[in-house]
C-alpha cells in the first residue's frame, strides 16, 4: 500500500461544525503531493489530523493510515498517544507556515535542533554537537556555529525557516509535511527555501505533502494535487490533468489566475523569464 492513505477523513469542531468532510487521498513513498486551498479551507487541520495532533475538542473520523517500512501500518485516527509519539518525527514530520512562532523564543537554536537528534539517534555530547552543525549545514545555513548559539529573534525569517526544516528532518521522516512553508517569507527567500526543500526531498527520497494556497507555487514542486474548498475536495489528480482540464469552477478559477499571472510575467520581461 501507499505510505499515507487518507480515507473519508472528517474533522468536527468542539461545537459540532464539520471543518473537513469525506477527504480521501494517498501519497506514495517518495512521491510529492500538493494540497491547495484558500485560507481556512482546512489544509492545516488535515496536516494536524495526519499527525494525530488536532486541537483539543476536535474529533476526527474516517481513516488515516501510515505505512512506514520497518514500522508497519498504523491507523492514526483513534490511536493511543504513546503509539503516535513513536511515529511522530520518524514516520512524518511538519514544517510550519510561520517560522518565528514555530521556534521556542527562549531556547537557543542549537538546543532546539539537538532535541530531536538526541531522541531519534541517541546522540550525546560532542557527537550531538557535530550532528547539530551538520544538520544546520545541510539546510545551507552559513555560519552554523553562530546560528546554533543564537536565539530565534536574532536570525532572519529565511534562516528561521531553514532551522525549522532542519528540525523536521532530524528524525529522518518518511513523509515531510510542509504547511505553507514559504508564505510568511520574502519573495526572493521563498524561491531559495523552495529550492532547498526540493533538493532535500529528492536527496533523501522522502515523500512530500506540500500545502499551499497558490497553484503556481505548489505546481512547481509536486506532481499530484488535491484542491480543497471549505473542507471538501473539489478536484484531485495528476498535476497536468488538473491544470489542463479543471472541472470544478473553483479549480478553473485557480488555474486561470495562475495562467494570468504567468502571462503577465511573460509580458513584462518580453517572453523570457530570467
Amino acid at each position: 500500500m501507499s505510505l499515507l492513505e487518507v480515507t473519508g477523513l472528517g474533522v468536527r469542531s468542539a461545537d459540532g461544525r464539520d471543518l473537513i468532510s469525506d477527504l480521501s487521498f494517498t501519497v506514495d513513498a517518495g512521491s510529492r503531493f500538493g494540497l491547495i486551498g484558500e485560507s481556512g479551507s482546512g489544509k492545516s487541520l488535515t496536516a494536524l489530523a495526519i499527525m494525530g495532533l488536532l486541537p483539543p475538542g476536535m474529533t476526527a473520523s474516517g481513516s488515516v493510515a501510515l505505512d512506514v517500512p520497518g514500522m508497519g501500518r498504523t491507523e492514526i485516527v483513534g490511536a493511543r498517544e504513546r503509539l503516535l509519539n513513536r511515529l511522530r518525527g520518524r514516520a512524518a514530520s511538519v514544517v510550519f507556515q510561520e517560522p518565528l512562532t514555530a521556534l521556542d523564543p527562549l531556547m537557543r537554536i542549537g538546543h532546539q535542533v539537538a532535541e530531536p537528534l538526541r531522541r531519534a539517534q541517541g546522540l550525546r555530547g560532542q557527537a550531538l554537537r557535530e550532528a547539530v552543525t551538520t544538520a544546520l549545514e545541510e539546510v545551507r545555513l552559513a555560519e552554523p556555529d553562530r546560528i546554533a548559539r543564537a536565539y530565534p529573534h536574532e536570525i532572519s525569517g529565511g534562516q528561521r525557516q531553514r532551522v525549522a526544516i532542519a528540525m523536521a528532518l532530524a528524525c529522518r521522516p518518511a513523509l515531510l509535511i510542509a504547511d505553507e512553508p514559504t508564505t510568511a517569507l520574502d519573495v526572493t527567500v521563498q524561491a531559495e527555501v523552495l529550492a532547498l526543500l526540493d533538493g532535500l526531498v529528492s536527496a533523501r527520497s522522502m515523500a512530500l505533502l506540500f500545502i499551499g494556497h497558490d497553484l503556481a507555487v505548489v505546481s512547481g514542486i509536486t506532481d499530484h494535487v488535491l484542491i480543497l474548498k471549505d473542507g471538501t475536495a473539489v478536484e484531485s489528480g495528476a498535476l497536468l490533468d488538473v491544470v489542463n482540464a479543471p472541472r470544478h469552477p473553483y479549480a478553473r478559477e485557480l488555474v486561470s489566475s495562475a495562467r494570468e499571472l504567468d502571462a503577465a510575467l511573460n509580458g513584462l520581461d518580453g517572453g523570457g523569464r530570467s
Partner: peptide, 8 residues
Amino acid sequence: TAARTSGT
C-alpha cells in the same frame, strides 16, 4: 505543536 510533531 512543532515539538509534538517531532515526537516530544
